[in-house]
Nucleic acid binder design. Structure first.
Lengths: 198, 198, 198, 198
DNA sequence: GATGAATGAGTCTTCATTCAT
DNA sequence: CATGAATGAAGACTCATTCAT
């Protein structure tokens, strides 16, 4: 799958996941660079070589984290939307699913944000983001075609949605500890009707 | 003040600014950690000692960049709003000023985003952000009191505004190269009236 | 004897030999140090434990390679010379046998050459070389006693013979792919009569 | 020149040379791989970073050693031959110059020999060797054309000369400590007239 | 006999920082 | 003020070797 091509025993898979999880925590809290491989293996309580048994490099591990997170969020949104046909409702459900997912993966946000700041990680990040963008754009186009929302460049609107969703997750859910469902309400209301309401 | 306490000749100030500017570029493009002090002084064409003549450390330089940027953005917004009394108009003008400022300082966004991902820089970042938040909250409270916008937690609304503004600046103005004024229009419309418009 | 003291089943002997052969190839092509134990077992398609079942260490394996090669070359020369009494002819036949042997074991040359460059392997190398030297010296002494060749330190002459033989094997037979018999002719002619001939 | 492109002060040049010399000693005695960068800088009594101030890597330093040695030997031979026109005499003088040069640089031989055993260093080695070969070939061709030596492939003869010269330098001069001039006599006599003499 | 996993000392290399000149 | 040189701690990574299963 996303491994370095080794066939792993169940015990091996567990170890690998332990390392992945621990690395995520550390990266999120302290930062990618300030977290050394020694920190990661130390936290799991294994020798240094173990890290390189499961991963090619610190960088590859990070890249894998990135890809997996983006994949997982999207899968979650997909599943949530699956049974809905109305484009505006799909959009809303997708947004709510995103808030829920972010609430369950607070550390990931830091990793994504960091990835955007370094040349070497931007391409990997961009890829996943353009997928998310594409999903939103699809719904927006339909909604515009149906006259349900005011005309506008769907890509721009999609960026607006993603920006709002991400920032509120970070600031209100993660930082302030607000209930993600409530914040999702706020986001949806604001996005659909604006500050002045209807 | 913003220096490490040395009195600088005009030439010295220039040197210092050169280093500051070059560091900003590099940090923004490559990342803070991947940019070495050697890179910075090399780009300016001076010896390594010069760097430590003007700055205490790489970290202190970064911190200064952060503080100065936040201060400058706020000053810009303040000046723009100064002659306006209507709270909703102040909000709008502030937003437009922000887009304009960001358009002129595309690199800064990366630095701020990075600062949020490392323990050691978060406090410095938070400080400036809470000021920006406070400004927006003030206007929002007034507007709510006047019944101009629907009731809601002004702090939450402020976060929404900042999130939207930042993300659109990054994605549309910086990345896509859109005209900041136009994107500001979009942001204001969206924030005030929502996707469904009035 | 030449093993690490284990009694091996036929299958075991084969495995052992596979490892020995593969290691020889890799050492010769890439070098001793750049070739890891993982490379060796990987090439044979077995687990790492197997290596340490048959050999005490990477170093011991290399030492064994060295000893075995020198032993085998000498055996070959001995057999070739066996039925000849004339010292000059014995010398010539020995030289030709050497060219033939080297032609069949091109990789060994690299190993011997490498062994000479590291403190830890020099003693093992020297041992075999002094044997080869002794053999040649014996014939040369006889030939000198019989007045068949000009007087001179037989040891020096032996070194000259070995140096020439080795270098021509390497450069002409191995590198250029020349026929070893023809190169042996050249070597013998040159050694016996010199560049100016008779 | 052969540096990593830094402009060095006199003191810098000296440091660099110290490192070069010390590395040569260690490489020759212990081997390239068993000699760590820490060993090299430790022997000179400087910090580890100094090494990387003057060289890009351990490998690059080795490569430079190789190139410089080959260049220097050739220069020496060139100078020795300069005033001589007779091809056979040029050959002889070149051989004698080689013995003298090797006598003064006993460590180099090990480095060259080692370089031949590792894939990554072979190209660099080959380059210099083909130059040496070409020089000898030139003289041999002339000598053959003049009928001074028996006909034969000059390249093969050149290899024979180089092989003999190198081996005798190593075994008799370096190892046994013989006088290089005397060994050169031996080599020249042997090469020109063979074991059986004239 | 064999394997995959683990160990940890050791390697090369980088880099913020200092300092003599 | 400025420079080139030096420092040395710290980092990523490798690899011979061991061992539980």
């Amino acid at each position: 799958m996303t491994t370095n091509g080794r066939k792993l025993t169940p015990r091996g898979k567990e170890r690998r996941q332990q390392l992945l999880d621990h690395a995520t925590q550390r990266f999120a809290e302290t930062g990618y660079h300030p977290t050394s491989v020694a920190d990661i293996v130390g936290g799991v309580g294994v020798g240094k070589g173990v890290f390189y048994w499961y991963f090619d490099s610190k960088e590859q591990l990070f890249l894998e984290l990135l890809a997996e997170a983006q994949r997982d969020l999207r899968r979650t949104q997909r599943d949530a939307i699956a049974s809905e046909d109305d484009p505006l409702r799909r959009l809303e459900i997708g947004i709510r699913a995103a808030f829920r997912w972010w609430a369950g993966h607070p550390e990931i946000m830091n990793l994504l944000q960091f990835a955007a700041t370094e040349k070497q990680f931007r391409p990997a990040l961009r890829q996943g983001q353009s997928v998310a963008l594409g999903d939103a754009v699809t719904h927006l186009k339909e909604a515009i075609a149906e006259g349900r929302i005011t005309d506008g460049d769907p890509e721009e609107l999609a960026h607006a949605i993603i920006g709002l969703t991400g920032h509120l997750s970070r600031e209100l859910v993660h930082r302030r500890g607000d209930d993600p469902e409530r914040v999702a309400d706020l986001a949806v209301t604001l996005l659909f009707d604006g500050l002045r309401g209807r």
